[in-house]
């Protein structure tokens, strides 16, 4: 068994509940992983300062895609005030990994950066 590709990551990567697009998002943002040029887009529907729907799409490695899935699962139904405080450690906690190599950290944190962009851009 691989130490990086744990069951948590493989599950999130293979069976994402949050992959897709939202017809009328209140927030949308996309960005590129500077390591590989992969694009990731995050779309949100926010009602009364609370995320009622969150989707991501784009291509990417298992780490970036799993992180996006797990992050969006975490913010589902959460108030924006809580979401704005999420940081790197929260993402790694979701991935079930206390540490990750610096190169792969960029992949893991891509969705957090895009999510922050979406919240800024509304």
């Amino acid at each position: 068994m691989s130490s990086l590709y744990t069951e948590i990551i493989q599950d999130a990567y293979r069976r994402p509940a949050h992959r897709g697009t939202i017809d009328h998002p209140t927030h949308s943002h996309q960005d590129e992983n500077p390591l590989c040029g992969d694009m990731l887009r995050v779309q949100l529907r926010v009602e009364n300062e609370r995320v009622v729907e969150a989707k991501f799409d784009g291509a990417g490695c298992a780490i970036s895609q799993a992180a996006a899935e797990l992050l969006l699962e975490r913010i589902q139904d959460q108030p924006l005030s809580v979401i704005r405080r999420l940081d790197k450690d929260d993402v790694l906690e979701e991935l079930g990994m206390p540490t990750i190599s610096p190169a792969r950290l960029k992949c893991a944190l891509l969705s957090l950066g895009v999510l922050r962009g979406a919240l800024r851009e509304s």
């Binding site: 130490s3 990086l4 590709y5 590989c36 291509a59 990417g60 490695c61 298992a62 780490i63």
Partner: peptide
């Protein structure tokens, strides 16, 4: 498979 996943697994 994304190339980064390929390379990470080869690294292992």
């Amino acid at each position: 498979m994304h190339s980064h996943d390929v390379a990470s697994l080869l690294d292992e």
